[in-house]
Design a protein around this nucleic acid. Sequence first.
DNA 1: TATGAATGAGCTTTCATTCAT
DNA 2: TATGAATGAAAGCTCATTCAT
Lengths: 198, 198, 198, 198
Amino acid sequence: MNKRAEERRKQVLRATLKAISEKGFSVVTLQDIADYADVSKGVISYYFENKEDVFYHLLEWMTDRIFQNEYAAIQKESKAIDKMRAYVNAAFKSPEDNRIFYSVYLEFLAQVNQNERFREVNSNFYKNCWFIGSEIIQKGKSEGIFTNIEVESGSHMIRALIDGCLLQWLMRDDEMLHSYYRDNCYDAIITYLNYKDS
Amino acid sequence: MNKRAEERRKQVLRATLKAISEKGFSVVTLQDIADYADVSKGVISYYFENKEDVFYHLLEWMTDRIFQNEYAAIQKESKAIDKMRAYVNAAFKSPEDNRIFYSVYLEFLAQVNQNERFREVNSNFYKNCWFIGSEIIQKGKSEGIFTNIEVESGSHMIRALIDGCLLQWLMRDDEMLHSYYRDNCYDAIITYLNYKDS
Amino acid sequence: MNKRAEERRKQVLRATLKAISEKGFSVVTLQDIADYADVSKGVISYYFENKEDVFYHLLEWMTDRIFQNEYAAIQKESKAIDKMRAYVNAAFKSPEDNRIFYSVYLEFLAQVNQNERFREVNSNFYKNCWFIGSEIIQKGKSEGIFTNIEVESGSHMIRALIDGCLLQWLMRDDEMLHSYYRDNCYDAIITYLNYKDS
Amino acid sequence: MNKRAEERRKQVLRATLKAISEKGFSVVTLQDIADYADVSKGVISYYFENKEDVFYHLLEWMTDRIFQNEYAAIQKESKAIDKMRAYVNAAFKSPEDNRIFYSVYLEFLAQVNQNERFREVNSNFYKNCWFIGSEIIQKGKSEGIFTNIEVESGSHMIRALIDGCLLQWLMRDDEMLHSYYRDNCYDAIITYLNYKDS
DNA sequence: TATGAATGAGCTTTCATTCAT
DNA sequence: TATGAATGAAAGCTCATTCAT
């Protein structure tokens, strides 16, 4: 039955996420994943073509979840400034979640140069992120703020800053800094967007 | 002779940089490195404790080179605004250099969670980067600009944006975008630093 | 199934015994063992932790087999003198068996200084050997012979002579001498045990 | 000059003995030996054909020294019984010496099956040992004792017991037992030699 | 569907030996 | 004579993948 298969695949992907976040991308074995998923090694080969295929689907699943979460967050707000805040808050969900997701995401990014499929998934994720940024900026413009910002490049810079901040936070390995980076990231974006030539 | 040893180690590190950038961190073998360096496999073990030790020294060497280059660049300028431009220009040295250095650096960052020594090297690199940012902001303040920016958090955001932009550029795999990201990065930083409350 | 695993392990141990006796302890490779066992290299790692673990279990298995064989032999006899003969005969089982077992056992003894686990197994084997010697001497004493011999030191000397003879025989590489050493060993022991002060 | 060469070779052999006794036969590297001898690795290759050649000469040197020492010891005594005591005492020189020499000797014995040259050296050592035993037994016979013992087989058994005792002592790793095994070995030999049919 | 035994390619690492200096 | 840099064969071990059950 298709439903069972879908459940199994999810089970494997969740286990893979956990395994990578704890052991590291290049160290994780199919046996590790099987152990975390509480299934036999054969199951993985049964539902996925090979190890790389598991990783591919994990990246797809992860980035989609992040996007869905962020997009849902901005939908709940009506004003551009609130949407922006919601976007950053969603990106900086929590130290625990960010640690797991971002450290694994980082491993994928590192593989992008060697894996065209990973690149495509990330390319799509970027488009979604920029879409969020664009929506917020355009909403702002319609509200009469963010007037000096180009929509496209603005959305690029917003995501660059979010990713740059999360990366720096992750590297500093101090959960206390999570709100520091979240707030400074938000402030920097707002400052950047609101700039008015004197 | 000590000089010969130093030369050999550099030779191996250069080869490792090339090997990782082309094959990827987790795929690169000692044989690959040996081939790129045009030496036998044994030489690597002769001059380094093990593979991880080669990587460690490569990261150290790379980040130090980047810092030295960036720091030298800002030293050449006298005005804060020019230093900032020089900093960004140095960070966005060239598509070719950035591609090699940044893709390898990214692989190291992905390993930081599994390797304490890598973390320490990067931690030091961050401090150097923030030092550059701080110097520029302080210079700006002494010139009467950048007045609304805190030195420390400002230096953090600057580096976050630079890294975020380089990361995004790298992921997009389009050398034409290099100047686009460099200029937008610079503009975003300047906008962020010069913000004046109305 | 557990039975299959046990069978496989035995298969590997038998192959290891053969491989060591023919190629030598420090020369034997996992590939050699795999070849002798007619399995792939991976099987060995699958059923044993590592090479040293294979050796450890081989030593355990060997010494246990030798002891069981010797102990069973003396059980079949009722008189002390017959038990003694049976013990020596069991120790000098046959040129072929002694060559294989004793040459491999000797290699293990040579490793005892570098391997605490080997030492423990041999220590246990010694205790078993001394137990056999003690039983025979005590039986003799109850029969009114072996009166001048201390049980403990007597059991030590008996095993020392047996091992010394087998070692010397092995070094001389002449299968014809097997019965010569067996008989002289037995005579020497009997002489030693029966000595009566005049 | 020949003298310098001889000195160098001795230096290397002494270092090899120490290296093997501390690290073990199969683990010791030429670098270890060079370090212990305080010479460069090249020196070893310069004065010996290869590693095996070093070992070969070490075995020769060791067994010759042991024999010379034991033979000199029995020469100092005039009566057979005193010679026998002197022989055993020389064989059980001291816990420290026995540990070093015998553990290394044992490693060589383990190699005899794989190395014809080692076998020859040991074969010659055996002949020397048996020669000592024969001399003592014959002297005893001329004194009217040891009458029931065959010279040849007696000399074989004597050495077998000495080696068996030293082996067992070495395996027990307790220096306190040294005098225990020495004295019991001597007693056992004397008992064995003096046996008189009633 | 699911298992896990078995395979063997391919990795890192060690080290005897060589040889230019 | 003496050095030690360099070589590369060969080892142990890991693990993705296959496949009989």
